[in-house]
Design a protein around this nucleic acid. Structure first.
Lengths: 244, 244
DNA sequence: ACAAAAGTGTTGGAGATACACCCATGA
DNA sequence: TCATGGGTGTATCTCCAACACTTTTGT
């Protein structure tokens, strides 16, 4: 029987060496569209403006003494000065051929000490209410940009796959957990709320039925305040307060 | 602005070194109870019978050219000669202090080449229909044993946490995906089917309502066969066939 | 006045819940 | 004959889906 102790924890003397990274799919909702934060970088020491870019989701190797959640928060915070944002681990990508594109390999040669070392990356998604951060875009890294979900270009490594998987997980979580409010600004209209559902679930919802459901929802509170400056009937504003 | 390129993918020259492992929470259902596969190991070269054990979930370091799913399948297969079983990645555990117990550290000293190296482990759960494998326990490693869910002892490392998280994920998946049949033998009774639901969801279900739901379920087919040798009215047997 | 989104009820059907007794078998 | 789990139907209620018109604001 093939039951040597090599199958049980840690009994093997081989010592493969890996890097572990975190990649963070940051979703932002601006009241209209769902966007994803992308990083556009030139090679270090080269002119950013001359055409050759590396586009990816924000990510980095984790530090020797750092937890995974911690790393995800650090990366996001370094890049955007956004803090206290909802972060969730959703999947770990460890295919041995994750980096197969020649351009990606070349890139790593210039940027990593051990460019050939295999990297296992832990995927996170983050949720940001863009209205609360967009007004001060200067606080964002100049190389960071929001990109609408349906216009994502081809990215480095397996990052298109990672975004796809993150979106899939977001869909699941929106129906099963109470996370959608993380994408909404503090004050929001029911129109925005419904639009957000429609984008994430990728289907249209009935307005009256949707509003009935919202009324049944705990934590959604109507404010004494309406929209202003819109070219149509101003909407009632709502807010969300977690119930004790 | 704290937006140096250190926040973006791979631009950091540090090179932490990690091991990456897979730990596999194997759930088995025998028609009565839900069980978890545990590994009991003596130190290599020591007598297994003399008291000092290391108990854990099956796991191992991944090989340099091996994918994560592949590693999970290899570990399970080495240990139990079970193959073709449902495997699912559910969470990655990377806390820097995952190994804090002195006994665990001592264990690693004896078993690992680099015992102090930080290990990030990818958690999988597997589903096994015990009736299809239990009859031939000799095919199992002698150190592997099934342990009822509610009698799990204190395990090595963070393995109690891992089992807890795996169970939690299993609960979610049972309601959202079609995976519960992976735990059922090819032929099963509605009583077993209901009991399995009750164990996993940790609540009692109404028999008549449950059976109504099963009738509505696609893929559950009544066989021309009944239980035999039971000391009560023999139950109709059913099977599950994935619909095209 | 017009354009644009906000806001508002009813009905029919499907699924969920609650509930109690008889049946077939082996010992 | 007894103990054990197997097997069955009905009534109620809640949730979901379908559907169209009026209101308020800015231009």
């Amino acid at each position: 029987m093939n039951t040597t102790s090599s199958a049980s924890h840690g009994s093997d003397m081989r010592s493969p060496t890996f890097d572990v990274s975190v990649d963070n799919v940051v979703f932002g909702f601006d009241g209209e569209d769902l966007q994803v934060l992308l990083i556009r970088q030139g090679l270090p020491g080269e002119d950013m403006g001359e055409g050759r870019f590396h586009m990816a989701v924000p990510g980095d190797l984790i530090l020797p003494e750092e937890g995974l959640d911690e790393a995800a928060a650090r990366i996001l915070s370094n890049l955007t000065s956004i803090q206290g944002i909802y972060l969730k681990q959703f999947f770990t990508f460890g295919a041995p051929d994750r980096v197969f594109d020649e351009k990606d390999k070349e890139w790593l040669t210039k940027i990593r000490r051990y460019p050939d070392r295999r990297v296992v990356t832990v995927g996170y998604y983050s949720l940001v209410a863009l209205a609360d951060y967009r007004p001060k875009p200067s606080s964002f890294a100049s190389q960071a940009e929001w990109c609408p979900l349906n216009k994502i270009p081809t990215l480095a490594f397996d990052h298109n796959t990672i975004i796809e998987a993150g979106l899939e997980k977001l869909r699941e979580d929106v129906v099963n957990k109470n996370i959608i409010f993380e994408l909404l600004p503090e004050k929001f209209t029911l129109g925005q709320f419904q639009r957000l559902h429609e984008i994430i679930l990728d289907k249209t919802l009935d307005k009256r039925n949707f509003r009935k459901n919202v009324k049944r929802m705990a934590g959604v509170i109507a404010l004494d305040e309406k929209q202003a400056g819109v070219l149509h009937k101003p909407a009632q504003l709502y807010t969300y307060r977690q119930r004790d």
